[in-house]
């Protein structure tokens, strides 16, 4: 009756032995976790609120380092139709209608505190983590695109085509909606690990993107916000975004 094909007595004894060994190994492993100070063992906590500060004065027109960093990290293909391919970050150049001042800045998911996409999602697939990161749970996303209708920032992409060669850390697939994850897979892994866009921006000597905990008054992002100030895109909607812009 057993459905296991190779289960004679001796093999099951071996299996049992292996299982006990495994328990030992697992014990060792859990010890070594503590050695490496793995933070992600605890769930994301509302003590933190992750955010980004973008200093537009340091951001230069024509540079798309953050976009490239993001695409590399998540295996996003930037070839193809701009309107149907995924764009987690897009670069926008602006000119003030009154003063003629020119600004360049990246726009991505603003990780709103009261996110319209979270409100409208029928299955709750669009959700906000305890630490303020707005994500799509692609296991429950049915691809209705209501979140894209609701997002004031046009920050979400629907996957229009079959994808292959995804990165292990960034599962993505046809028929679901996605957007900037604030690189949760990176920031969960290790303390002080930065999102890919911020890393790339620094690598290319702009350092226009600061990532950090908005709830921690001593974090560099809070310090900078204190001294430089930072505005929200469409502040009139009072969504309390996690992404702030200086010099906008």
């Amino acid at each position: 009756m057993s459905r296991v094909p190779v289960a004679d007595n001796e093999k099951s004894l071996q299996a049992r032995r292996r299982f006990l060994q495994g328990l030992g190994l697992a014990g060792m492993a859990s010890m070594s976790y503590s050695l490496l100070e793995v933070k992600a063992k605890t769930p994301a906590s509302s003590d933190k609120r992750w955010g980004l500060l973008i200093e537009t004065e340091k951001c230069s027109s024509g540079c798309d380092a953050c976009v490239r960093g993001c695409n590399e990290e998540h295996g996003i293909d930037d070839a193809g139709d701009d309107l149907t391919r995924a764009q987690w970050i897009r670069k926008i150049d602006l000119k003030d209608e009154l003063t003629g001042n020119e600004t360049s800045l990246p726009v991505m998911c603003q990780h709103c505190e009261s996110a319209p996409c979270v409100d409208v999602c029928p299955t709750g697939a669009s959700f906000k983590r305890a630490d303020g990161v707005v994500l799509v749970n692609k296991h429950t996303c049915i691809g209705c695109r209501y979140c894209m209708m609701a997002c004031p920032y046009k920050a979400r992409s629907f996957i229009h085509e079959t994808l292959t060669e995804q990165k292990p850390s960034a599962p993505r697939g046809k028929g679901t909606v996605e957007s900037c994850t604030l690189c949760v897979h990176r920031i969960d892994e290790e303390q002080d690990r930065q999102p890919a866009c911020a890393v790339k921006c620094t690598e290319e000597a702009h350092s226009a993107i600061t990532f950090g905990d908005l709830n921690d008054p001593d974090s560099s992002i809070s310090q900078k916000l204190n001294t430089l100030g930072g505005s929200q895109i469409r502040a009139d909607l009072q969504l309390n975004t996690g992404v702030r812009y200086q010099g906008l």
């Binding site: 897009r90 926008i92 150049d93």
Partner: peptide, 10 residues
């Protein structure tokens, strides 16, 4: 109050 002079996503 600002004019978008360039964007990859309309």
């Amino acid at each position: 109050g600002k004019e978008v002079t360039s964007s990859t996503f309309g």
